[in-house]
Design a protein around this nucleic acid. Structure first.
Lengths: 347, 347
DNA sequence: GGTCTCCGCTAATCCGTATTAGTTAGGGGA
DNA sequence: TCCCCTAACTAATACGGATTAGCGGAGACC
């Protein structure tokens, strides 16, 4: 025991001994004495002098043990936190999260999900409780784990709209419905009357919202639209050509964190030597974060990721503070992006 | 008091109550019982079941207070951890850090430095102790704070070579000296006999190493080189033209996290309608992470940022484990990058 | 039958700080 | 002279978990 005692820093007890007072007195003096306990100026000075001479620095660990607060916000992404292939999509969220966390005096705890097995995920989800509250980022909601957090009153906020758990899950989302409808309306204004919509195969609120917006605008304007689900492989040059032969003048692609849909369309076009907007217009339901400035900008809408990150942190800290009447669901608007790949329909 | 008691996470005491044992027994069961205290299988099971059903997670603070380990690695960057303006430069480090941290079973604690004032920095540096050890990333070393950590035996590793504290500071760096010399040699082989080197104004080991490498290769090959320090404003088109008029055929620019030097040269060239490598060759001492695929690649060398991040984590976990004979300084090699902006010298 | 030894667990204590309830000394008032 | 009040501290305790000493009971052995 004694041999493994590191040369520890001076404690309040050491100061107390030196100043001839008790440890609580030291705590009062150094802690600013917010409770307003009476303290003589003389004692105060002695304690401060002793602390100074010992080079005292409060131990943050012990301090937080007493506070029952860690000042830690968790961030859990259900993928690698810094994913290599989808890095640009999540990055702006993180920027916003960090900015606001810093502003609110919280540090960020990044959960590394090395094992993406079910058991591993459960394990990590348990560790989440180390933080005072946690942000979640992902296309889907692990309902059991989240339900449990909610039952326990653990503060959490999802980045992205999610209704898998009814009205219980707090989130900060983006208005994909309106933004997607707008994209369709802009295409129709440019004369497009026949669209193809390429989306991810699996269902998630983010995809459902985009499709709902698209369908509502399609119905409203009376144009045609094929809706195609893909996992990447089945949208190729031949398919693209057959659409165009059928009279499709604009392709709309869903943008997700994996970018499967838009990547498939782009490579199909490249493979066939087709160009946008000359051969067809290409619009995105979303944007591409890491898009190179040298490449043509894709028309679509800008997701306010950074602001979503900030708003999510604000909501979360509100939950942690126990604010009663704060809204637990928030939807931010998206800006239209004209882009270079959308043009007037031929004919 | 009672009203501010948040529904706190289950503690060992809760488990003990549920399982009908004492808190220390719970601690023994959950802690792996390294002391080898006798425990019946039946008790063990009851405790584990109770813990499971309550969703128990040990409090890192409490654990740290008595034990001193919480499987948290700190990451401190002296700027925003997800910097918006220099984002691409630090990002690959983070990728590597996260990969290796996940592999070693550590979570990451990102310290947000809201205030970059001296006082604020000290405050944050105190919080660093929450983690078992900490990685630091930055051009400069705050010597007092770091010295203090080292004195206290707190495990830390710098990403980037730093000798401001003598031999005491553990780091994982890149071999800028050799890599920079190589860049110069390649230019000389292409016939360049007169270079201009543009570097940051302030001094840091990263800059000193590059300049040392450059100077050694310049001396070795007997060519001429102007060394210019800039903060961005004073390297403009006129200056660039005057170099070329003086016979400079290649400009070498330092690459740092701010990219001040290379950005200045590039905008000076663009302003004068000068092109690389036709009008002059442009080489980088380093690389540009976020470089768009559509733009010309700059010649230089690739800094193995991801691998540096991984190596730093390995070194840090070694320090935490108290490995005695592990090296505390490591230098990784850089790969040459030919690039499109370096060509044969005219004449 | 008495002592010895294990087994299986708990009581006590520590880590460093914060907070609250008390306790003591001294002064003032009646 | 007795009582009360206030100033100025301290004792006790909480926070959650780890560690060590120790205790009661059961079986073994002489």
């Amino acid at each position: 025991m004694s041999r493994d005692r590191r040369p520890s820093r001076p404690t309040q007890a050491d100061i107390a001994r030196l100043a001839g007072v008790s440890q609580p007195t030291v705590s009062l003096v150094l802690g600013g004495n917010k409770a307003g306990v009476a303290l003589s100026e003389e004692t105060r000075r002695r304690v401060l002098r002793a602390a100074e001479s010992l080079g005292y620095v409060p131990d943050p660990i012990a301090r937080r043990l007493s506070h029952r607060r860690n000042n830690l916000l968790g961030l859990y992404t259900f993928t690698a936190t810094f994913p290599t292939d989808v890095q640009h999509s999540y990055y702006p969220f993180l920027v916003g999260v960090e900015e606001e966390a810093a502003a609110q005096g919280y540090d960020l705890l990044l959960f590394t999900s090395s094992s993406s097995t079910e058991a591993g995920a459960t394990e990590v989800l348990n560790r989440v409780r180390l933080a005072d509250g946690c942000l979640f980022l992902g296309r889907h909601v692990p309902e059991r784990a989240m339900g449990r957090f909610l039952d326990d009153g653990y503060p959490l906020v999802y980045i992205g709209r999610h209704d898998e758990l009814g009205e219980r899950l707090p989130y900060v989302g983006a208005d994909y419905v309106s933004a997607s409808a707008d994209v369709v309306r802009r295409l129709v204004e440019l004369g497009h009357r026949h669209l193809a919509y390429v989306r991810e195969k699996d269902d998630a609120p983010a995809s459902a919202d985009r499709e709902a917006g698209l369908r509502s605008a399609v119905a409203e304007t009376g144009v045609r639209a094929e809706v195609v689900r893909t996992d990447g492989g089945d949208v190729d040059t031949a398919r693209l050509r057959s659409w165009l032969a059928d009279g499709v003048t604009a392709v709309v692609a869903e943008e997700t964190d994996t970018d499967i849909a838009v990547t498939a369309v782009e490579s199909a076009a490249r493979g066939g030597g087709l160009r946008c907007p000359d051969d067809f217009s290409l619009a995105l339901l979303g944007d591409r974060v890491g898009r190179s400035p040298g490449l043509p900008a894709l028309g679509g809408f800008a997701i306010p990721r950074r602001e979503m990150g900030r708003a999510a942190v604000r909501m979360l800290t509100g939950l942690i503070a126990g604010e009663p009447d704060a809204p637990i669901r928030q939807i931010l608007g998206c800006q239209p992006l004209p882009g270079d790949t959308v043009g007037v329909a031929p004919h």
